[in-house]
Amino acid sequence: MSQMLKIKDQVLGSRLFTGTGKFSDTETMVKTIKASGTALVTVALRRFHKDSAADDLYGPLSELDNVHIMPNTSGAMNAREAVNAAMLGRELTESPFIKLEIHPNPHHLLPDAIETYEAAKILVAEGFWVMPYIPADPVLAKRLEDIGCASVMPLGSPIGSGQGIEVREMIRLIVRDSSIPVVVDAGIRSPSDAAAAMEMGVDAVLVNSAIAAAENPEAMAIAFAMGVEAGRAAYEAGLMSRSREAVHTSPLTSFLAGGSV
């Protein structure tokens, strides 16, 4: 059993976070979330409309045991909108978790680091546990840690792209220097992508599309849970290193031959 993940004061029983988007129907979504074993699920907000009342996720989500609901700020184009979205979300979840995401470009959906930073400052002051979705930038990650974010969520590659971890070196640096949990969010396509991220020492991964858009989401959720657990266990066990044969052309230590001075 791997070490428990803790975000702020909350211990989470799983290192796989899931989303609620792109499912064919609510029943599949609920079955899939249960199968994943997740303890943290993100949800978006939309304007109420009579016709959509039947699809309301509030009931099904509030019936899940041991699952924390984390609203996101998707749709917000700037810091002000994201803060409003977060305030609305907290009214629904009565939980401090907020996934802060601001992606003004509708095509690649890449996060706006500057607006995200501004919104994070305000939300931290308002008592939120801010989980910002960010470009994999080690300096930005530290700046967000400095102002009190609960975690950072760097992207592996663009949302929904399924390209896996395209920014390994940046993620490695973020993990190495971060004192708050690091969650890889976006870009993960397969359980092996998730395992690869976890093997690097990432604290958790957030997977939505890769599960919801699978042929069999419920079965894929189980596969991801195993991938995440395997990756974490491997990280904690300590990976064997790759062999790196040194080329001993001209010995660098001949000056030591005489032993001590």
């Binding site: 899931t18 989303g19 609620t20 988007g21 792109k22 499912f23 979504m29 993100t42 949800v43 978006a44 907000l45 939309r46 304007r47 109420f48 959509s52 009342a53 699809d55 309301d56 996720l57 509030y58 989500l61 609203p71 996101n72 998707s74 409003n84 305030m87 609305l88 009214e91 629904l92 949302i159 957030l206 939505n208 599309s209 919801a212």
Partner: peptide
């Protein structure tokens, strides 16, 4: 009118003509 009204404060809120009201609910998202 652009301000979040906390649930505990709903009772006291009286609306005026032409007020902007936004009502949101959960939706699927990642």
């Amino acid at each position: 009118n652009g301000k979040v009204v906390k649930r505990v404060d709903w009772d006291g809120v009286q609306l005026k003509d032409l007020d902007d009201v936004d009502v949101v609910m959960f939706a699927g998202g990642g």
